[in-house]
Write a protein that binds this DNA or RNA. Sequence first.
DNA 1: AAACAGTCCAACCGCCTCTAG
DNA 2: GCTAGAGGCGGTTGGACTGTT
Length: 312
Amino acid sequence: MGRAPCCDKNRVKKGTWSPQEDQMLIHFIRMNGHENWRALPKKAGLLRCGKSCRIRWVNYLRPDVKLGNFSFEEEETIIKLHQLMGNRWSAIASRLPGRTDNEIKNVWNIHLKKQVSRMGIDPVTNHSTSPSAGHIEKSPSMEKGNLDLIQAKALADSPATISNSSDTLYDSHNLSSGILSSINSIDSEDINGGSSSSLGWLESSCIDSFAGPIGYNQQPPDIEDAASNIENQYYATEISTNELMWKHSSNGEAHYFTSDYLEDDSLSCMDGAVKDPHLFKDIELQSNGDDCDGFGYWLNILKQAGSSPMLL
DNA sequence: AAACAGTCCAACCGCCTCTAG
DNA sequence: GCTAGAGGCGGTTGGACTGTT
């Protein structure tokens, strides 16, 4: 026996919502909220499935939803975030205030996918489809913002042989250009010797990193984890543009930070302080030592990119 | 004007995750 | 630990709209 259907499909109305239905839904939610979507249609006098009510409200009727054409900046953001996140529309939508996952998905499928294809990038894999991959040539017609994507693509195109983290949220090809752009040099002593300035540099770089995607193209060397010898430090174990893992060097306590937190521009997380618990959650980390490799990866990758460190 | 093709987008469907019991 | 119900997510589709022949 399968799951009971969410509603009697023979007795619910389908298709486009009428203005009257919209008004009924808006009025009911204003008066009563929407704690239980499944029960809502009956209470509101709507011959609709609860799911349908929810979609209608979330995508079009709620007051903070932003309707109308997307700005250039919004489209640029979607392209960049899609490069990082793939088809995680709700995650992308959370970075675009007022925009819904459905709307972003439509814009991507109708406009942006083609735009990205024209740039020689496979919109599905985010890999370059042009034979000149790895060479960045700015064409006269290149739109603002597209260069970043192509640069990122060129770097990310080489096969990554890095070991996979079991639960890394984003493709590990991707790394923030914000990190890269903030780091022009880091000497090998810092990497191998594990000075605290390296940690500070990496930490602060990550905090400033919500700028866009970039990749790496070389297997990381076997670098002894610099952070492991430092007491009471947090060190990065996985980095993507807007999601970081930090692990405490002595007690192994792991934390996960989202871009929301990073955009806060605060360095207070360096000592493990959490300003806003809503923007942070613990995750499980494998304590098999792989994390240390992760730290080495990023140091090496960032050094390869030839950016300048931002030392604390 | 009619037929057809292509585009756009709101809404649906089925699956997944989370949570309470 | 298991199960069922609920919300949430992403893929897909139906139909309205627009452009072309």
